[in-house]
Design a protein around this nucleic acid. Sequence first.
DNA 1: ATGGGTGCAAAGGATTTGCAACATT
DNA 2: AATGTTGCAAATCCTTTGCACCCAT
Lengths: 149, 149
Amino acid sequence: MKFDPAYKKLMECGIRPSVQRLEIMRYLQTHFTHPTVDEIYMGLKERIPTVSRTTVYNTLRMFSEKNAALMITIDEHRVCYDGNTTPHAHFFCRKCEKIYDLMDIKPSREYCKDIKGFVVEDAQLYYRGVCPNCQKEAEARFVAGEVIN
Amino acid sequence: MKFDPAYKKLMECGIRPSVQRLEIMRYLQTHFTHPTVDEIYMGLKERIPTVSRTTVYNTLRMFSEKNAALMITIDEHRVCYDGNTTPHAHFFCRKCEKIYDLMDIKPSREYCKDIKGFVVEDAQLYYRGVCPNCQKEAEARFVAGEVIN
DNA sequence: ATGGGTGCAAAGGATTTGCAACATT
DNA sequence: AATGTTGCAAATCCTTTGCACCCAT
């Protein structure tokens, strides 16, 4: 139990480890897809058939308040969660609509030093564009004579 | 008319300049407070008493699609708009909840070059923390012997 | 008279809240 | 028993849509 990463994280963040909370944290720690509340809810139902959306909403909100998870709002109106709370950047592909982690880029450390007078506690950096996969597909279609958008 | 910055901006972005559109653009260009839809709606009512929320919503969405305004979602669930479409970073103060522009920091140019394979079209950078004003207040209270949070 | 623009009312969707039942100590 | 946690239902809030009217060309 002490070695369960989900349990460990909750403890570190001062959150009492109920069954639901553990499962939600476990979901975040094993899915790197930046799930929405509903995706998490659907996933949880397999393990806890009686779970309610309310609990998932409330728990995730609490997680982000206690810094146990990151709430990201890259695609306006699509709030999603990231179990990785270490600083990193996100890339949103406008074609496949996937969100990628860019672990190499650490916004908070490098760029936020001494903005005069502003005390930075957290930094979020995200990019929009086209990901390598969709890029390749576009090229393939181009060779085939199609119009590119 | 040709020298009205609101009119000019709409023209540049290929948007037909109706009275409502001009007033919404004018509001954005004279308020640097990153207003929400509702704040803009309330402000507009003084000049166009019959204006509807629908029009404000639809117009702002169109503005951001045509790059006449920036839609930012810094504070989760508080979508707001920025009439300044040149690249710059935002700072959100968790105490006074104001959003500041950091014009010196230009996220898209500096940091997004050659993320291998990813084609970057847009970049948003924002910081959270405590702004200079709230910082000063905290210090004053500290001197007075209060607990700091 | 035609087409775009506006605004009301209604619909839709996401999230939060009130509260009673339940679990855990 | 006391406290914290859950989940249903309802309430709330934000945003979009359908449609009729209006304005300008």
